[in-house]
Simulated scan of single mutants.
Amino acid sequence: MDRWQLAIVRDDIARAEIADLPERAPAEGEVEVAIDLVALTANNITYAALGEKTPFLGPDAGYWDFFSDRDEPGRLPVWGFATVTRSVADGIVEGERFYGYWPLASHAVLTAGNVRDSGFSEATPRRAALPAPYNQYTRLAALGDHRDSDHDWWPIYRPLFLTGWLIADQFADEGDFGAATVIVSGASSKTALGFAQAMKARGQGPRLVALASSRSAGFTADTGLYDQVVDYGAINTIAAEGKVAMVDFAGNPAATRAVHERFGDNLAVDMKVGITHWDAERGGAPLPGPRPIGFFAPGRMQKRSADWGAQGLRERSEAAWLDFMPTARRLTAIDRRVGAEAALAAYRDAVAGRVDPRAGLLIEP
């Protein structure tokens, strides 16, 4: 298929199919892009799980709102690169390449606002109320920390590393919440690896305990980023002196309850980041210890932009990313899939939790 898009049932993300993407000539101020290279990670499953509605994006917004109207199937947001194929926007020409947030599809039409040397902002009215970092599209030549040799790792890790780095930055800013031990749930996820790397880069800091399934425990231990790896079923065996913090990249309610019951008031913070266990049952009795809080990367970026200035944030994050690249290469083998059917199969594998944690899934639409 020359033009296709992944269509997901909004309230049942395991149901998806490839659908035709009708061709539409861009109107004044719009650009059409051909999507070149995107990644599919556990983070994208969190987007799908929070597609209908999430307080992270606003009182009545979800991740489906980026690329589909409310009466349409969900369109999965992914990160990566695309090339302009048609442009009716001043300052953007055919053949230019951009990094940003795209639907999992062969093509997309975007409304280009605030066109500048570094890129443009997506100005479709539906997206105006959504967080600004998701609406920024950067010219490839303007990415200060992009290296041709690292190109394949950008879609896989760049947005996820930034989130992990920002979480580690908040821990440093908050004195690690007084915790001597940080429990990391979903420790094999790409975002968790970025967090662990950033925590270790600080030097002396809290002890990092990874929670991992039997399937991912070997890989998690081999990363060398954690001080201890514990199976989800052995949370009661974790020994920790003083306060404990939890960073939850998995959204596994059973693990959350086990940690809260094990540590109670000694649990200083339970920070929620991802929901890879999207199909787990939720609810039940109130949790002992602190009420879980959410982490939202755009909010932290806004704070650090105010603290350091946009240029200061950019310089710090770019330096941290370049420091992380040897780790990304060491931990992740590229698994490249080409075409619509391969993209659908990769999505189904990701939803079902069948992706090898050592693999970085790339899609060439």
Rank of each mutant, 00 (worst) to 15 (best):
A34K: 13
R257T: 13
V33A: 13
F296H: 00
V259H: 07
R257E: 08
A340K: 05
R75L: 15
V351A: 02
L225G: 00
H260I: 13
L211I: 10
V244G: 05
G294A: 15
F296M: 03
A89K: 06
R262P: 06
F66P: 03
V247A: 09
T327S: 12
A250F: 02
S189N: 05
A217H: 09
R75G: 09
A14H: 03
I92C: 12
G274S: 13
A306K: 13
E32V: 12
F98W: 11
G309A: 13
F296K: 02
D323I: 09
A280K: 10
T181I: 14
W278D: 03
L160W: 05
E281L: 07
S189I: 04
D265L: 06
Y137M: 13
G274F: 00
A212F: 03
L143S: 11
A132F: 12
A39S: 14
P286A: 08
A108C: 14
D36C: 05
R126N: 06
S149V: 13
D148A: 15
A359C: 03
A82Y: 08
T237C: 07
A359P: 01
A280P: 01
L37A: 06
R3H: 13
A343C: 15
G58V: 04
G113T: 08
G29S: 06
A89C: 12
R15C: 06
P77T: 07
S87K: 10
V184L: 10
A310E: 15
A310H: 14
A240S: 11
I45F: 02
P292S: 04
R10S: 02
R86C: 00
S189M: 04
A245N: 00
A105I: 15
R116D: 14
L130E: 03
A132G: 04
Q5I: 11
E281N: 11
L331G: 01
A297R: 06
A39E: 00
A112S: 10
D231Y: 03
I156N: 03
A108F: 02
T256W: 06
T220A: 08
A61D: 03
D335N: 12
I183R: 03
G299R: 03
T191I: 02
M301Y: 00
M1A: 10
Y101P: 02
D231M: 07
V247Q: 05
L162P: 01
T138W: 15
P159H: 08
N252G: 00
V351H: 02
D12G: 12
R70L: 00
G251P: 08
G339Y: 02
R15P: 01
Q5N: 13
G100E: 04
P26R: 05
Q136G: 04
E28Q: 12
F161E: 09
R97D: 05
R139S: 05
P155D: 06
D90M: 08
D349N: 07
I156P: 00
R116Q: 14
N266M: 07
G51C: 09
I45D: 04
L322H: 15
D349G: 01
H277K: 03
G203M: 11
D176K: 09
E364F: 09
A217E: 01
R15Y: 00
D148F: 10
G218W: 05
A306E: 14
L208D: 00
G29T: 11
L140S: 09
R314L: 12
G113P: 10
P357E: 01
R207E: 07
A333D: 15
V273R: 00
